[in-house]
């Protein structure tokens, strides 16, 4: 999925609408690039030896990256006029190289906010180990 270059009108998005599914190919480079771009130098996010010694199956995505990808998943759909207000996630199993991370989302609420709409979107990012992150993203869109 590539980023939307325009935003849908809030009035055209109904509760129950599904976001386009998206799959992130998680590689060691993806994990390391996200960790360093978010200024997180914890060795579990770049050293497999260190990560496995800590009991993890491999290096794994840091939480800042998970939030970064959730934000991207939302605005790839909602476009440049969206303003993300909240990203609330419950963290599950690790996102590790070789396990594609599948993102899905559904609009669960829509309410008026001045000349805009506020939406809640239930999101899930899962791999073959189970849920990596589940939660709710709140965003504004113009009417």
């Amino acid at each position: 999925m590539s980023a939307a270059q325009t935003s849908p009108r809030g009035a055209d998005i109904a509760v129950g609408a599904a976001l386009p599914d998206w799959e992130l190919n998680v590689t060691p480079t993806v994990v390391v690039a996200g960790a360093i771009a978010s200024r997180d130098f914890m060795p579990v996010h770049h050293s497999r030896d260190y990560a496995t010694a800590q009991g993890a199956p491999d290096i794994f995505l840091n939480i800042l990256s998970t939030n970064g990808y959730v934000s991207r998943f939302i605005t790839d759909w909602a476009g440049p006029e969206a303003m993300v207000r909240k990203i609330a996630i419950r963290l599950g199993g690790p996102a590790i190289p070789g396990q594609p991370l599948r993102f899905s989302g559904e609009v669960t609420d829509r309410r008026e906010d001045g000349d805009e709409f506020v939406f809640d979107v239930a999101i899930r990012a899962a791999n073959d180990l189970g849920d990596h992150a589940t939660g709710t993203v709140t965003l504004n869109l113009p009417r």
Partner: peptide
């Protein structure tokens, strides 16, 4: 790093025409 191509993060023209009035940082 995240291949996040929302134009408001680096396209000054698009960003200045939109709600943010200029380039903004990714919220995350």
């Amino acid at each position: 790093a995240f291949d996040d191509r929302n134009p408001v993060y680096e396209n000054e023209t698009t960003a200045s025409e939109g709600r943010f009035g200029g380039v903004v940082a990714p919220p995350a």
